[in-house]
């Protein structure tokens, strides 16, 4: 328990830090409102004359986007922090401290993301409510949805950690992040629910790790069932464990490459 307490402290300190930037963060998220407006205009035209497409209504499809965007926009840029620390060599200072480097990064990023996700979800709620009205079943799905949104955020942090640690080999890791981001955009169903995909692609896309960052948390919120929730939760737990172990192995390998030259 003492071991976990220091990560809880890092997590809560980051939360306090991040609250200072909330007003600036909200102004920066005017794009979120614009994206919802553009997609509302697009979906309104597409849904004209039909109530359901791929089993989802206009209301569900727009709210779906607000949840996938909440996970995406609250992302902490952990890969940039690690990349800079590796480039500057300041990672050497972090290694001497009495905590796991990966654990520190996860606790810090989680604190940052959780502060960011709350205003985004509130903003999404207001805008979607004004455009399409209330999402049926919102309040009953919310407690489960929150767990899955936190799971999606954690999964993204694990990806960020792995990509950041690649800086030990390549220094510039941003292109890897672009590739991952696009995989979450496309295969993860960020803009378009995977249910819209052709049948042959749906099964693979739903099982891939990218879907557990975007599709599963959002679809559970808009089309709640315990089965969806269980699938999403187990999938997230599985992929978080796999990615955390991968990050651990990469870090251990990377440590052997470090040469500290005094200073």
């Amino acid at each position: 328990m003492t071991h976990l307490r220091k990560y809880r402290m890092i997590f809560s300190c980051t939360i306090r830090d991040q609250f200072a930037y909330i007003p600036a963060y909200l102004i920066g998220n005017i794009f979120f409102v614009i994206i919802l407006f553009v997609f509302f205009s697009l979906w309104s035209v597409i849904y004209r004359g039909q109530n359901l497409i791929a089993g989802l209504s206009l209301t569900q499809t727009l709210w779906y986007l607000s949840f996938t965007e909440a996970v995406e926009l609250s992302k902490a840029r952990v890969y940039i922090q690690i990349q800079e620390e590796v480039k500057e060599g300041s990672i050497a200072y972090a290694l001497g401290r009495p905590y796991s480097y990966n654990g520190f990064k996860v606790a810090r990023s989680l604190g940052e993301s959780l502060v960011k996700v709350i205003p985004i979800m509130l903003l999404g709620f207001i805008v979607c409510f004004l455009f399409t009205g209330m999402l049926p079943g919102y309040w009953s799905a919310l407690p489960f949805g929150i767990i899955l949104i936190i799971g999606g955020i954690t999964l993204n942090i694990m990806w960020g950690l792995i990509i950041g640690l690649l800086a030990f080999w390549t220094e510039e890791v941003t292109p890897f992040y672009w590739i991952l981001q696009k995989l979450i955009f496309i295969a993860g169903g960020m803009f378009l629910p995977i249910d819209f995909f052709p049948d042959w692609l749906q099964t693979a896309a739903k099982a891939a790790p990218f879907a557990f960052s975007a599709y599963w948390p959002a679809i559970t919120m808009v089309d709640f069932s315990m089965e969806n929730f269980r699938t999403a939760l187990f999938g997230q737990a599985f992929y978080i464990a796999v990615l955390a172990f991968t990050a651990y192995l990469i870090f251990r390998t990377a440590l052997k490459k470090i040469h500290v030259q005094g200073g």
């Binding site: 597409i46 497409i53 791929a54 941003t174 292109p175 672009w178 590739i179 696009k182 955009f185 496309i186 803009f191 378009l192 819209f196 995909f197 052709p198």
Partner: peptide, 21 residues
């Protein structure tokens, strides 16, 4: 290359959408 790839991602979105509707 990154920018090229970035733009390609959205084409997939439109392909799927037009195929569906």
């Amino acid at each position: 290359f990154g920018m090229f790839l970035n733009n390609c991602a959205f084409i997939f979105f439109w392909m799927i959408l037009y195929k569906r509707i």
